[in-house]
Amino acid sequence: MSVKKFLNDPDDLVVEALEGLVTASAGRLRLHRDPLWLESAAADADRRVTLVSGGGSGHEPLHSGFVGPGMLDAAVPGAVFASPTALQVVAAVRGVDRGAGVLLIVKNYTGDVLNFQIAAEIAAEEGIEVETVLVDDDLASESDDGPGRRGTAATVVVEKVCGAAAARGLPLAEVAELGRRVAAGARSMAVALEGAVHPGEDVRSFDLAADEVEHGVGIHGERGIDRRPMAGAHELVGALTEPLVAALGLAEGDRAVVVVNGLGSTHLLELYVVFREVAALLEARGIGLARSLVGPYVTALDMAGASVTLVRADDELLGLWDDAVTTTALTWETR
């Protein structure tokens, strides 16, 4: 017996969810099929450079929830936890290009990197200028060899800052450079309290005893760094946050954007407790809390747990962060 979920045919899950999203958007989003990609129907007046991101489904609201004015022009969804195909990405790039180039925002996973790179090469051959920003913020997957750090919740910050830069009418090279600066100054770490269940399946991606957590977990149910004893929020969040401060070399007087992200089924009530711990830790070190975002933004299906992302902040990045954005999952007036 599979775990209870709102499903018709599991094979139709991704498309049916996109259909629901587009209908709910009341004309602000447009769905393309064969190949499948999602486009913003509303446009920033001054935007010349357009932004395409994408990746496996199951991380909603990433990326479909961030399509709209001030953020992404298109999102390209793969199957659950699987890269979109190169042809899907090429179709989106062709579709949104306005002649001033397209920026691809790619999370660092082998399949995503390969398919987006192929799409970039094909688009370039067709005369479309393409730049790529690779997001690789997950400190838990840092190693000397292998594919490098995974891309996780810092993607939201990269997409917001690049989206604002594009909306201001900045050229491709500058939008890409800003994205790389955000990515380089961002690190994340996650802890799972329960594994995720794939739609249509009956077991969690990993089983945890009642008294243990998975520290350093990824957003696909990959195993983390190690199993640790369950503890209070203060200790769990400290173990996530302190390595980030160290890795970024944040010191007294520095400022950071903080994202406290729910991994799918952890309640907002708990996420605010997590955020409170992060804020207290930063304050104790004299690190300024520049901006913050609390909620489920980059999920791993219904995994229970949270991630903490710190992004080194400066006035230029914060100005772009404060620009207006109108998407399903992130909306505010210019601050």
């Binding site: 190949p35 793969g78 199957a79 699987a82 890269s83 195909t85 190169a86 042809l87 899907q88 090429v90 082998t110 399949g111 390969l114 398919n115 192929i118 094909i122």
Partner: peptide
């Protein structure tokens, strides 16, 4: 080529190219 570039995984797109 287009058929392979429209396939998931990593072998598919490599064969596509």
């Amino acid at each position: 080529s287009d058929a392979f570039l429209d396939t998931g995984g990593t072998s598919g797109p490599l064969f596509g190219m």
